[in-house]
Nucleic acid binder design. Structure first.
Lengths: 127, 127
DNA sequence: CTTGCCTCTGACGTCAACGTCAGGTTTTAG
DNA sequence: CTAAAACCTGACGTTGACGTCAGAGGCAAG
């Protein structure tokens, strides 16, 4: 039992395929996230990427932000807020701006839904 | 007072620039919509496009559908439902599919909003 | 008439998040 | 040991809705 190690049970590192399957994305996507500065990986002696298991929820989080319309750059800029909780004024501004943008998008989508429902209703009465 | 004309006061046709300005898009975009089969235009003797004034709300509608994630092809396929109210089974299926897709997207965005609000809250307590 | 703005066609450029292929090394299963 | 599966780098391809540029007319005002 090594004294220089933490009490945590020496987390098992996983390879890129397991991350991809776990998060439901392609291996290519995971490499892309690393290239964009979103994800870091240790390397095995032979050069293979090794991830901690929390890489999987992290990648899921990336997907969620992508789906919300954030770019890789923006996600990278906001990552510090995420894992350290610390923010400067600029980051707080970005957070609020993105929030507003997403909210506006929700409103747009809701309006589009209403338009579609309109048509669906008329097509039901006009079979 | 021509007898062969309808009683409507001979609607003034407008050129592409007026359509674009009126709908808040670029001239290029309007030409693109025509190329995609979404919009038709008469031509002046010299070849300039001439539109009826209802082209403006129509273009706004296209923008709304684009914002909702529909492709040009899909909008074109659903256009008949829109201006004639008639639909076949396939079109009704597409309408419902798009509706479901958009609704799912709204839910995703709402979840993303919640994540962002989480961070915003913690950054407010951690100034 | 000419100045300035609008329009035309045609074609290449853009951007983002990957997909896909080539050609090679590594790990794993039997 | 061997074959399959997984991984590597590097680089080009994809998609959709336009942007942008080139070169050539068209149209009202002064």
């Amino acid at each position: 039992m090594p004294v220089t190690e933490a009490a945590t049970p020496a987390e098992r590192l996983i390879r890129i395929g397991e991350v991809a399957r776990g998060a439901g994305v392609s291996v290519r996507a995971v490499r892309y996230y690393e290239q964009q500065g979103l994800l870091r990986a240790e390397r095995s002696p032979s050069g293979q990427r090794l991830y901690r298991q929390d890489a999987i929820p992290l990648v899921r989080f990336f997907q969620q932000m992508y789906a919300a319309g954030l770019t890789s750059r923006r996600i990278a800029e906001l990552l510090p807020c995420w894992d350290s909780g610390h923010t400067d004024a600029e980051q707080r501004a970005m957070l609020h701006a993105e929030r507003a943008r997403i909210q506006a998008k929700v409103d747009d989508l809701q309006a589009a839904l209403d338009r579609l429902d309109e048509v669906i209703a008329t097509t039901n009465t006009h079979p």
